[in-house]
């Protein structure tokens, strides 16, 4: 294998690995859209919140982002639940153009909260595996990218199982498929909406943890990721979760 093709394969693999994480971010956005028809314009900012929580847990307690992932996902789950409960449930029946502003505003509030609390500096924690890499034949792979990819795939898989098999997951699918039908069988659709938004948020929070070792954190990277997630979801089809994963990989490679 020549030098050029080795480099090409290496870039391709790096792209695919990062794309898995993009996919995970986008799955949250896609789930929220699929269930409620709402585009979460604060999605990237929620992810940044997850990154900061993960960062501080690492700096203050020395716990690696891969370990704190569950706690961070839980924290962003609660954040998502509160946002849905206080704001999003009130705007569901509004025209789409009017749903944009409240969510963009939430994004701005989160971004500026991060700015106030932690300043504008870029922060890159030196996690245990942060700069490790390994060689697979002539190809070099960043260990943290590989772990991020594997965990992203596992979480995606767990979400699929949850939606397919669990009772709550089935109720979420039912509410997404046909709201009237769901109300009439006695599903508490408002509760399902809260849960869906919270799960979508938790997913992006978890993705944030996976990115902590990979790129510097600052309050302003949030909207880039909102855009990334949005592009991925468009690539994969709105509301199509598997499509989001594929779209993530495509975008990862294209970058």
């Amino acid at each position: 294998m020549g030098m050029d093709s080795t480099l090409a394969v290496q870039l391709l693999i790096q792209g695919v690995l990062l794309g898995g994480v993009y996919g995970l971010i986008a799955i949250g956005l896609s789930l929220i859209f699929g269930v409620m028809g709402i585009i979460n314009f604060a999605h990237g900012q929620m992810m940044v919140m997850g990154m900061y929580i993960s960062y501080w847990i690492f700096v203050l307690l020395g716990i690696d982002p891969y370990i704190s992932l569950v706690a961070v996902a839980a924290a962003i789950f609660i954040l998502g639940w509160l946002i849905q409960y206080t704001v999003v449930n009130r705007i569901l029946d509004y025209p789409e153009a009017m749903q944009v502003l409240p969510l963009v505003s939430i994004g701005l509030i989160l971004e500026n909260a991060a700015l106030m609390l932690w300043g504008p500096d870029h922060r890159s924690p030196q996690t245990a595996l942060g700069l490790d890499s390994m060689w697979v034949g002539p190809i070099m792979v960043d260990t943290s990218r590989l772990i991020a990819f594997v965990l992203a795939i596992i979480i995606t898989f767990l979400i699929f199982i949850f939606l397919k098999k669990s009772n709550l997951g089935k109720c979420i699918r039912a509410a997404s498929d046909n709201r009237t039908g769901a109300v009439l069988v006695g599903i508490d659709v408002d509760r399902i909406y809260n849960m869906s938004f919270a799960i979508g948020a938790a997913t992006t929070g978890a993705a944030g943890c996976l990115l902590v070792p990979l790129l510097p954190i600052s309050p302003h990277i949030g909207h880039d990721f909102t855009l990334t997630a949005f592009i991925v979801v468009i690539l994969g089809g709105m509301g199509n979760l598997l499509g989001a994963l594929v779209g993530g990989v495509i975008l990862g490679v294209a970058e």
């Binding site: 089935k170 699918r173 039908g181 769901a182 009439l184 006695g186």
Partner: peptide, 28 residues
């Protein structure tokens, strides 16, 4: 109202199109 024992089979059926027949029934 569903819990009290009234079930409403709506106009236009309102089934869950992307769920299986069995899952639709279970959702009832």
């Amino acid at each position: 109202i569903v819990a009290a024992g009234i079930s409403h089979v709506p106009e236009g059926r309102q089934v869950f199109p992307n769920m299986t027949v069995k899952e639709n029934l279970e959702m009832g």
